[in-house]
Design a protein around this nucleic acid. Structure first.
Lengths: 206, 206
DNA sequence: GAATTATAATGACTGTAGTCGGTAACGCTA
DNA sequence: TAGCGTTACCGACTACAGTCATTATAATTC
C-alpha cells in the first residue's frame, strides 16, 4: 500500500456505511436497480471494493435493505386505515377494502420493478437479505387482529385457529403478488386480490 | 480460424444441441445446478462458448428446459389419479386428495433445489424460459374439469365462473409453493396445501 | 454453378459480483 | 510500550455469463 493520506480516523465505519447506502440510493434512483454495478457505487462513494464487502455481504443485501426502506416509506398506514371504518362495518368488508388498499400500494407506490427484485432476493435467501420480513410481520398481526374481531363478533367460524387463518391470508397476499410478478402486466393485482379474498372469506364465514 | 479438422458435416446443429443438453444434464446431476458453469458444459461437450449461445439464449434457458423435463418425468399422472376415485366421491374430497398428491410430488420427487431455481427463473422472465408454463396448463385444465363437475353435481355454488375458480386454485398452488421456497425447511407443503384448500373449497361450497 | 443469404461455430473479449492476501489503525491486556 | 487480536480498508485477481467480429458451411435463387 502506498501510504497515501492516512485518513487519520479509521474508526468511522458507520460513516463509510452511510456513504455506500446514500450513493447506492442516488444511483439506483437515477439508473434503476439492475443497471448499477458495485464498481460504480464504490467509485461514487470514493472507497474500495473491499470496503463495500466489509459492510454488505452482497449486492443483494444492500438492495434488500434499500427496498425495505422504500417499501416502508411508501407504505400506507394500514392500522389507521383499518380504524377509519365505522364500528359496525363487517370485518368482511374491512378485509376486502384492506387487501384492495394493499394491492394499490404495491402496484402504484412500490411498483413492479422493486417487487420483482424483492421477490427474487427472497427466493435466493442469501445472508443479510432478511430485511423484508419485518414488513410481513406487521401485516400478519393486523390480519390476526381483524380475524379475531370477526370471530368475536360471530361473523367467522371458530373451527380454524386465528393464527392459522391469518397465516393463510398473508400467504395468499404473497402468493398473488408472486403471480403478479410472473404475469405482469397482464394481471390486475387489485381485482385478483379481491376475488381471491372473497372466496377465502366465504370459506371462514359462519 | 485455424482450419483444423473441418468436421465435414456442419449441418448437425440438432446433434450439437443434443450434446449440450446431455452433457449439461450429466454435470447437473453430478454437481448440482448452481455449481455447473457454461464453460464446463461446453468443455465437456467439446464445443465453443459461441456455439452454446447459438442454441440457448442463456444458461437459465437451458436450465428451465431441463427442469421442465425433470418435472414431467417425475410427475405423477394426475388425470389417472383423479379417475381412480369411485364415481360418488365428492369433488371436495377428490380435490383435497389431489392437492396432497401434488404436494408430495413437489416435495419428494422434484425437490426443493429444482423448484427454487424454477421459481427464480420464472420471476426473471428471460427469453426462452417459458417451458415451465405447459405444466401449469395441464394442472389448470384438470382443476377446471373438477370444479365443473362440482358445479354440475350441485356441490359448488354457481356465482363464480369455473375458469375464475380454477385460475385462483392454480394461483394458490403456485403461491404456496413460492412460500415453501422462502420458508423451507420450516414449512410443511402438504399440510399447508390441505389447510388452504379446505378454506378455499368451503368458500365455493353451496 | 456462381452469387447470395442464412445458419452454425469459433474464441478472444467485456462486464461484473465476489475473493483474498496484505496493511493500517484501534482496543485490550500485561 | 510491547504484544495480540479485531476491524476497516485496499486493489489486484478470479470466476463466470454473455457478446461480437469473423469464418465456415449449407440452402436458395438466378
Amino acid at each position: 500500500m502506498k501510504t497515501q493520506k492516512t485518513e487519520s480516523r479509521r474508526r468511522n465505519a458507520p460513516e463509510t456505511r452511510r456513504k455506500i447506502y446514500q450513493c447506492a440510493d442516488e444511483l439506483f434512483r437515477q439508473y434503476g436497480f439492475e443497471k448499477v454495478s458495485v464498481d460504480s457505487i464504490v467509485e461514487k462513494a470514493g472507497i474500495s471494493k473491499g470496503a463495500f464487502y466489509v459492510h454488505f455481504p452482497s449486492k443483494d443485501s444492500l438492495m434488500s435493505a434499500l427496498i425495505a426502506e422504500y417499501v416502508n416509506k411508501s407504505d400506507f398506514n394500514y392500522r389507521t386505515f383499518e380504524k377509519s371504518f365505522p364500528d359496525d362495518t363487517s370485518v368482511f368488508h374491512i378485509l376486502i377494502a384492506l387487501v384492495e388498499k394493499i394491492a394499490d400500494n404495491i402496484a402504484d407506490n412500490v411498483g413492479y420493478n422493486l417487487i420483482k427484485i424483492a421477490y427474487r432476493i427472497q427466493i435466493e435467501r442469501k445472508p443479510g437479505t432478511d430485511f423484508l420480513l419485518d414488513y410481513n410481520r406487521d401485516i400478519y398481526s393486523l390480519f390476526r387482529d381483524l380475524v379475531n374481531r370477526g370471530i368475536q363478533s360471530g361473523e367467522f367460524k371458530t373451527e380454524i385457529p386465528v393464527d392459522v387463518i391469518a397465516d393463510h391470508f398473508v400467504m395468499a397476499l404473497r402468493g398473488l403478488t408472486y403471480e403478479w410478478c410472473i404475469r405482469y402486466p397482464d394481471f390486475d393485482l387489485k381485482k385478483q386480490f379481491r376475488e381471491h379474498f372473497e372466496i377465502l372469506l366465504s370459506g371462514i364465514k359462519k
